[in-house]
């Protein structure tokens, strides 16, 4: 883990929300700039396009859109930088990147059956397991 520690420098805390916000844009830009090398490292050309990866990064950031505490944003920024460094240092393997980002947590399972829309939560749970 020493290389990670070396690579990730902990920046000083953001003073206010504005500063944190600008840092989020910074990390988004850095991540976008590293997309070509990520695609090269993990051989992703035949799986995703650059624009898709960009929107995946954006959606990862937007997951935390409701956070307003600058301290929490700083922490999330740190974790994001660390993750980006891991990816760039080839600390992950191809299937990690594909599984985590390209396919998402649902994976290949497509559970979003349009028939399921009107079901009660009981029935949705029933289809999943006996214990709920």
């Amino acid at each position: 883990m020493s290389f990670t520690l070396r690579a990730v420098k902990v920046p000083p805390n953001s003073v206010n929300l504005e500063e944190a916000r600008s840092r989020v844009f910074e990390i988004f830009k850095t991540a976008c700039r590293s997309i070509p090398s990520i695609m090269e490292i993990y051989n992703l050309d035949d799986i995703v396009s650059k624009s898709q990866l960009r929107s995946i990064i954006a959606s990862e950031i937007r997951k935390n859109a409701n956070v307003t505490n600058p301290k929490v944003i700083d922490m999330l920024l740190f974790k994001g930088t660390e993750e980006l460094n891991n990816i760039l240092e080839h600390a992950k393997q191809r299937h990690h990147v594909i599984g985590q980002y390209v396919l998402g947590p649902q994976g290949l399972v497509q559970d979003l059956d349009p028939k399921d829309q009107g079901l009660s939560s009981f029935l949705k749970n029933f289809y999943k397991s006996n214990y709920f």
């Binding site: 009660s120 939560s121 009981f122 029935l123 029933f126 289809y127 006996n130």
Partner: peptide, 28 residues
């Protein structure tokens, strides 16, 4: 012990079937 395989409790099966059949039983 836990249930075997994909089995469900008896009353849950009937409750689920009632919903699929459109005669939803009022207990969850």
């Amino acid at each position: 012990v836990p249930t075997v395989g994909d089995a469900r409790d008896d009353w849950k099966i009937i409750r689920a079937l009632s919903e699929v059949a459109g005669m939803r039983l009022p207990y969850d």
